[in-house]
Design a protein around this nucleic acid. Structure first.
Lengths: 178, 178
DNA sequence: GGTATACTCGATCAAAATAGTCGGGAAAGA
DNA sequence: TCTTTCCCGACTATTTTGATCGAGTATACC
């Protein structure tokens, strides 16, 4: 399992989306403003999320994104795998004998145990549970502005590199193989 | 919680160490060969692990590294935090109102929930449990060559970028803040 | 039809992290 | 003294991150 800020952004954005999709599709511009993530970056992330069918898109005025299936049926593992993509996995090729020398890919073996635990764990956390937690905390979700196309020119937020490049607990950039 | 290949390497190396430390200190050179991790990189990682007192070092012939405390008392979270270091955490500064606009650092709030879960989880996995799993799997641990300084010139392994730069489940490079 | 909204796609880019190299030390044992 | 092993700092190549820009396409509404 690979965990990066990329994954963090994706999860955060998905929670934001889940919290608000009752009022119809949510635009990336809105998520960008609320979560301080650059619009272009969100576009990239949601491109992947859409290809993995975690979200659906609606174009044109009043359009935006909605969840591809119920929040309860989307897990954190789903989201993270979607944005981190890469398909390979095992350095050796996945089969038994990677190094002729008797010990078939011990490196890979050692890691596999923890990795499996991680995957299982993240797969047990649903988007819905995170949403519920937010609601329980009393997060206020502005209620549907039924007027479409509201005030057009909200001040464009120009996010300056705000992300903690090195949080203590940061999902970092490499490999939980398999 | 931040998870990188760096963390993977560290965990893998620690399991290797734990599996073998009964026969006295384990050299980085040995771990390097078995786990296919570059010696210099291991030195960097073990420097951090030592500063965090997860391992102890012994210099000179017959020297090497041993665990700083019992494997049962070392958690995966300990290891990962050690090599990933960074101390900051919350993009905002940790306090309540990061953005004047009523919503105090929602971005951070949203993420915090999942992050806490991750930390709790990784803190619940002990090095010992991973070691036990390996032993149960029947991993063969060569028994103590009681002859110190054995065959000196085992072919030096020159690890070519062997790490899956993009494993499906890779611990990636960024931020689980806090 | 025209226009504004919104997603879609691709190329490009600076900064950071990852993973590794190199070389010179310093302690300890034989 | 020689060898082994840890120790440390500087330096480097590659990859990833996160962001920007520009050119599209689909849709709604007037």
């Amino acid at each position: 399992m690979r965990l990066t800020t990329k994954g963090r952004f994706a999860v955060t954005a998905m929670i934001d989306l889940a919290l608000r999709q009752n009022n119809g599709p949510v635009t990336l511009a809105a998520i960008s403003q609320r979560q301080q993530i650059s619009l272009s970056y969100l576009e990239q992330l949601f491109g992947k999320l859409r290809r993995h069918e975690l979200v659906e898109s609606t174009r044109g005025p009043g359009g935006g994104y909605s969840l591809g299936r119920k929040a309860a049926e989307i897990t954190v593992a789903d989201i993270i795998v979607s944005v981190d993509e890469p398909i390979d996995a095992t350095q050796c090729g996945g089969k038994e004998n990677c190094l002729g020398e008797g010990n078939r890919c011990m490196t890979h073996e050692l890691w596999a145990a923890l990795n499996a635990k991680m995957v299982d764990f993240l797969d047990s956390v649903s988007l819905q549970s995170l949403v519920d937690e937010q609601l329980a905390k009393g997060v206020v979700v502005e209620n549907a502005p039924m007027i479409k196309r509201a005030i057009s020119s909200a001040p464009v937020v120009k996010p300056i590199r705000v992300n903690a490049p090195n949080s203590v607990f940061a999902l970092g950039g490499a490999a939980f193989s398999k």
